[in-house]
Nucleic acid binder design. Structure first.
Lengths: 246, 246
DNA sequence: GAGTGGTCTAGACCACGAG
DNA sequence: TCGTGGTCTAGACCACTCA
């Protein structure tokens, strides 16, 4: 496609090969950018631009002041539409660890529309940050009207489920879950929190769940780094023949 | 969040303001990068880095040899899960124009799994490229087993629907549509085709539709630029009370 | 303080688009 | 051919991490 392949892509390809062939192992730091630049005989600018390609692919994580870290093979997480839980693809490996910060606040801006509540009404925010090993993995902000919010949410747990399960147990049965999915670059705050480059795409899911009366019982803003998450949705066009399970 | 805001963000913010306040109008070219660099008293490198922020937001489209073009306000397109059609949010404005290239090929790689057909079996590919005005908008590759593929697909049409409708009329009624959604940077080919930077996130949707017998009648690989498309999914948890409409 | 990445400069040279 | 953006250089200086 490119008649004159740019040096940064040549270098990126080379480093990618070294990683995929195991010459550089996951969890290790690459040589410093200065060293790599001289090894490839390019300027630091060009070398950094090569690394940014790998960063955009999620292969490498930069940590300011420490180095360029080869990430563990992205364990993709499956977000299942409608189910309101994350599910790790290979639960055999180290589970995600989730920390939760609970905040009481008043509905404002976008929240008013999402939850369908009056402005300034009481809302509880659950800020969930999940980690995979030492690397931040994903971010969720879950909003629940105060009168529906549980009081004893654990602030830390080993697996995403337990937090969301706690929420699930305490809310009325859901009737409908609507999800809006978009791909965008992370905001600077999100990039800093998740320690990803602003070049890496994220999957932003806005989820609104309502009960049988049509009342919105939960709104969630999920931020899943694109290299580590897929979302799956199934639409059934045989409503009268569907089996009971799901 | 940043104690020392970087110049590129300051510049990006300023240009963004000029665009959003109408000081620079959609469809116009920005001054050349050299001019902008001297106006902001920064190096061309820094200025380009500022523009790349706006490019990542989809506000600006770079065209090599011509300039930096202020894109029309992204008209977001809604992809509705399960429906197998794109729907423009404001059909009042100029409709999307879709060109289709039909190719006969043999199933290979990923296609074999998606379609559930033997290797090298006959498959028809519909390569759909939609345009919004002069800018490429989105890309779809639709694969149909040869024996189900229609023969008279128009190669160009005014609206996405007509192509997909043609396909829809000729295939058996769908029973289930499964969709996998992920966010990733575009491949170099996709970036070139859609004339977007490789920094702009895309929404990649893999759709597999099967009929009542479980046979896969269509697989589609959709590439929707993140700044111009959202995907919506609705999950109904009241299977026995659902109304017939949708 | 030593070493790392982050930002930025002031250019050079190449590739593309249009006349 | 001219003006545009694309790539790259060889540094400088700042911010962060860790000992």
């Amino acid at each position: 496609m490119q008649s004159v392949p740019s040096r940064r892509h040549v270098i990126a390809d080379d480093i990618r090969d070294r990683i995929s062939t195991g010459l550089i192992k996951a969890g290790e730091y690459l040589p410093s950018e200065t060293q790599l630049a001289s090894r490839y005989a390019v300027s630091t600018t060009t070398l950094r631009s090569a690394l940014s390609v790998l960063q955009g692919e999620g292969l490498v994580e930069k940590i300011h002041g420490k180095g360029n870290f080869v990430r563990y093979p992205p364990r993709r997480v499956a977000y299942v539409g409608g189910a309101c839980t994350l599910r790790t693809e290979s639960s055999a490996r180290s589970a995600l660890r989730v920390s939760v910060r609970t905040t009481n606040l008043q509905a404002h801006g976008q929240l008013i529309d999402l939850l369908g509540v009056p402005a300034s009404s009481a809302v509880t925010e659950f800020l969930c940050l999940s980690h995979e090993g030492k690397s931040p993995h994903s971010l969720a902000r879950i909003y629940v009207p105060r009168d529906l919010s549980p009081t004893d949410v654990p602030t830390e747990s080993r697996c995403c489920k337990s937090v969301e399960e706690t929420l699930a147990e305490l809310r009325p049965p859901l009737a409908e879950v609507r999800e809006r999915v978009c791909a965008r670059p992370p905001t600077p705050e999100e990039a800093a929190t998740l320690r990803i480059s602003s070049a890496l795409a994220i999957l932003a899911i806005t989820r609104v769940a309502s009960d049988r009366t049509g009342r919105v019982v939960e709104a969630a803003l999920l931020v899943l780094p694109g290299d580590r998450a897929d979302a799956f949705f199934t639409t059934d066009h045989m409503p009268h023949e569907r089996t009971s399970g799901e």
